[in-house]
C-alpha cells in the first residue's frame, strides 16, 4: 500500500519562508482537499512533498523512502502529479498527451506496447475521451483539456494522485465531471490530494480537509469537523454563518 507521509516540511525561497513545518499524510481510499488562500504555500508544499524542490528541513517519505531519493520515474509510478494546467507546447493529439502518463513506464509515443496501450485505451474510455482521441489538443475547450490531463494522470496507474487546482476555470458541469472521475479513482483504491478553492465542492467530495495559511497547516480533519464559519474567517478572511448544517458565505471581511 502506497503512503505519502510529509513531516514538518519547511521551505524557504531566499529569505522568505514559504512552507512552515507542514505535515500531512496521503493514503489510498482518501480524497484529501488542500484549502487555503492564494499565496498560502499550497503548490510549494505539494512540490516539496513530491521531492521536486529542496526543503530546508523536514522530510516527505513515500512508503518509507524519502521522495528526494527516489528517481523521477520511480516516484512518478507511485504518485501521478497534475500541476496547474499550462498550455501545451505543441498541438499534440489527445491520445499522445494521455500516453505521456505512461512515460514513467518507459512508453515511447507512437509505439505504445501491450500494457501501455491497454492502459491508455481503458482511460480514454473511462473519461469519455474516445471521440476526442485523435483531436489536436489546441482545438479542445478548457474543460475538455482538463479532462485530458486527468486521463493522463490516471493512465499512469499510480496508487496516488496529487492535482493542483484540477477544476480551475472550469464550468460547473466540468468541475463535477472531473471530480467524479477522481472520486471513482479513490473508490477503486486510489488516494488523491487536490487543491481546490470551492468549499462546497470540497465538502461534497473530500474525506478530509487540509487547511493552510501562511505556509502552515492550521487544521486537518473531516469536512464536518473543520469547515466552520470561524475557520473561513480565520483562513480566508471571509464572513460566513452556519445555516442548517451548511456554511453560507457572506463576503470579504
Amino acid at each position: 500500500m502506497a503512503e505519502l507521509v510529509a513531516k514538518r516540511l519547511t521551505v524557504f525561497r531566499g529569505e522568505s519562508l514559504l512552507v512552515d513545518a507542514a505535515s500531512f499524510t496521503l493514503a489510498p481510499g482518501e480524497l484529501v482537499v488542500l484549502l487555503g488562500p492564494n499565496g498560502a504555500g499550497k503548490t510549494t508544499l505539494i512540490r516539496a512533498a513530491l521531492g521536486l524542490l529542496q526543503v530546508r528541513s523536514g522530510s516527505a517519505k513515500l512508503n518509507g523512502t524519502n521522495t528526494r531519493q527516489l528517481s523521477p520515474s520511480e516516484r512518478a509510478r507511485q504518485i501521478a502529479y497534475l500541476p496547474q494546467v499550462r498550455q501545451l507546447a505543441w498541438p499534440n493529439q489527445v491520445k499522445d498527451v494521455v500516453s505521456l502518463g505512461r512515460f514513467s513506464h518507459g512508453a515511447v509515443l507512437g509505439k505504445l506496447t501491450g500494457r501501455d496501450a491497454a492502459a491508455v485505451e481503458r482511460v480514454l474510455a473511462a473519461c469519455d475521451l474516445k471521440p476526442l482521441a485523435h483531436r489536436k489538443a489546441d482545438t479542445l475547450s478548457g474543460g475538455e483539456l482538463a479532462r485530458v490531463h486527468c486521463a493522463r494522470a490516471f493512465a499512469t496507474e499510480a496508487p496516488l494522485l496529487i492535482a493542483d487546482e484540477p477544476t480551475a476555470a472550469l464550468d460547473p458541469w466540468h468541475q463535477f465531471r472531473n471530480l467524479d472521475l477522481i472520486e471513482s479513482f479513490v473508490r477503486e483504491g486510489g488516494g488523491a490530494l487536490l487543491v481546490l478553492h470551492d468549499f462546497e465542492l470540497a465538502a461534497r467530495y473530500a474525506t478530509r480537509l487540509l487547511w493552510m495559511k501562511d505556509g502552515r497547516i492550521v487544521a486537518d480533519g473531516s469536512p464536518a469537523k473543520t469547515l466552520t464559519a470561524e475557520r473561513l474567517s480565520e483562513v480566508y478572511r471571509i464572513a460566513a454563518h452556519e445555516e442548517s448544517g451548511r456554511v453560507v458565505q457572506e463576503g470579504a471581511l
Binding site: 521536486l52 502529479y81 505521456l100
Partner: peptide
C-alpha cells in the same frame, strides 16, 4: 529523445510524469 515528448507538457508536468529534467 523520449524526454522531449514529455517536455510538451511543460517542465513541471514533465517532471511529474517522471522526466529527469
Amino acid at each position: 529523445g523520449r524526454g522531449l515528448s514529455a517536455l510538451t507538457l511543460g517542465e513541471d508536468a514533465a517532471a511529474g510524469v517522471g522526466l529527469n529534467l
